[in-house]
């Protein structure tokens, strides 16, 4: 049986990869991919820890909801990014800065 700590180490690594992508990528869609990594890290944790919580099954249930909500969030974000592309012809968040004093 694989101990819980191994899952948690992998998920921590996934989370860090995702965070790194969010901080370094210069493309809104790549940032979204990074966010997806972070969410999946959390989902892995939930499923792994859910094995020790058989009666309530909270971890498994949470993972299902998190997957659905992540998809909903990405759908909305993609629609918004599409709108941004229509106006700016770029989706690099650094180059989009009309909102300033």
């Amino acid at each position: 049986m694989i101990p819980l700590s191994h899952f948690m180490i992998i998920s921590a690594a996934l989370f860090c990869i995702g965070l790194f992508a969010v901080l370094t990528k210069r493309n809104a869609i790549q940032i979204l991919i990074g966010i997806e990594f972070m969410i999946n890290a959390a989902i892995l944790n939930f499923v792994a820890a859910g094995r020790f919580d058989r009666v309530a099954g909270g971890g498994q249930m949470f993972a299902l909801f998190a997957i659905v909500l992540a998809a909903a969030g990405v759908a909305v974000a993609l629609a918004i990014i599409l709108n941004v592309y229509k106006h700016f012809r770029t989706i690099n968040p650094d180059k989009i800065d009309t909102l300033k004093n």
């Binding site: 979204l32 966010i35 972070m38 959390a42 989902i43 998190a66 969030g73 918004i80 941004v84 989009i96």
Partner: peptide, 23 residues
């Protein structure tokens, strides 16, 4: 649309942090 994009990206990152903390 710029405001919406900033809000959505920033919000998604923060909620990913929250989800990981919860896990």
């Amino acid at each position: 649309s710029e405001a919406a994009m900033k809000y959505a990206l920033f919000g998604a990152v923060c909620s990913a942090f929250m989800l990981y903390g919860m896990s």
